Amino acid sequence: MNLAARFEIEDAVKLPRSGAFVLAPNHYTEIDPVVMGVVAWKLGRLPRFLAKASLFDIPVVGALLRSSGQIPVARGGSARGKGPVQAAERLAREGGGVIVYPEGSLTRDPNLWPMRGKSGAVRIALEQGIPVIPAAHWGAQQLMGRYSKRISLFPRKTIRVKIGDPVDLSAFEGRPLDSATLAEATAVVMDDITALLEDIRGEKAPEKRWNPADHDQHETGRFEG
């Protein structure tokens, strides 16, 4: 990755150097997990992800995922092994960090702006009392386009990253974690991520965030992550 891209990381000091946290970045290419994994590593934190449980059944790959502390999650959100809830508890207890993409899959916004988020990041944060750190990056699409499987290594690309302040979720503390509360809290996280991306791109995002539910079922099913 260092040969393929140079990383310009703004406000790197905002990523906690110790203690548990959820890092919540935007998601628009298949290579994003590698990009944010490199960013976390450069900033001195071991990157952990919520990964599809089926990946843990692949020889060698599964062993590497388990040994590096990745968290298996089965399709539909059910748990495998310790499961995401137990893993989050361990994360908080051990002071680790996990990278969770609130969008759940690659954004379907035509211009790669963040779309409507899902509740995984805020649920972990609110249940465990740990901060959500928003982040945005831009430039990975030059390495690998959305839905592409091909990497463009030359010429060397520039990936800009901006780390935000912890999302203020104080308004939701002590409230029942029902669907309404989680949706409202997730919208706050997505607003912060979008604002960071606006700064990087130097332009304004659409006033209305892309919502897959507003589009036909064929499109939603085709790109389900």
Rank of each mutant, 00 (worst) to 15 (best):
S54P: 07
P72L: 01
F21E: 01
A125T: 06
K149N: 11
A92I: 02
L65E: 05
E203W: 07
P134V: 11
P131G: 07
D214G: 13
G221M: 14
P134Y: 00
V13R: 12
V73L: 11
R93S: 00
D168V: 01
A51F: 10
K204T: 04
L50Y: 05
F49W: 03
E94Y: 14
L15F: 13
D168C: 02
L91Q: 09
R17V: 12
T158V: 14
L91N: 06
W41G: 07
E89Q: 15
P131D: 04
G97N: 04
F7V: 01
R108C: 11
A187V: 02
N111A: 07
M190C: 12
R108M: 15
Q128V: 01
S148Q: 08
A213W: 08
D11Y: 15
I159W: 05
K14G: 00
V38P: 05
V85N: 05
T29L: 00
N211K: 12
V34Q: 06
E184S: 10
L169S: 08
L23C: 09
K52A: 12
E10Y: 09
S148P: 00
F154D: 01
Q217T: 04
L143M: 07
F21W: 01
L106V: 01
S148Y: 01
E203P: 05
T29W: 03
I99H: 07
E184L: 06
S78H: 14
K52V: 07
R66L: 00
L55Q: 08
F172M: 08
P47C: 06
P16T: 15
A183Q: 11
D191K: 03
G225W: 15
G174I: 00
S152W: 12
K204C: 02
E127L: 01
Q128M: 10
F154S: 07
A20N: 12
R209H: 05
P212W: 02
D199P: 00
D192R: 13
E127F: 05
N2G: 13
T181N: 04
S67C: 10
R6A: 12
T194L: 06
G44T: 09
D165T: 15
M190I: 11
R175E: 14
K162W: 00
F7E: 03
G44E: 13
R175M: 10
P72F: 07
P166D: 06
L46H: 15
A63N: 06
S105E: 10
L169A: 01
V98I: 13
R80P: 06
D165M: 13
A79S: 15
L153C: 04
G104F: 03
A74K: 13
W210A: 08
K82A: 11
L43K: 03
V161K: 06
E173Y: 05
P59I: 04
P16R: 15
M115Q: 12
D216H: 04
A5T: 07
R17I: 04
A92P: 09
K162A: 04
V73D: 01
P166C: 08
G37I: 05
V39F: 12
V22S: 05
G174E: 01
T181P: 03
G104D: 02
Q217F: 06
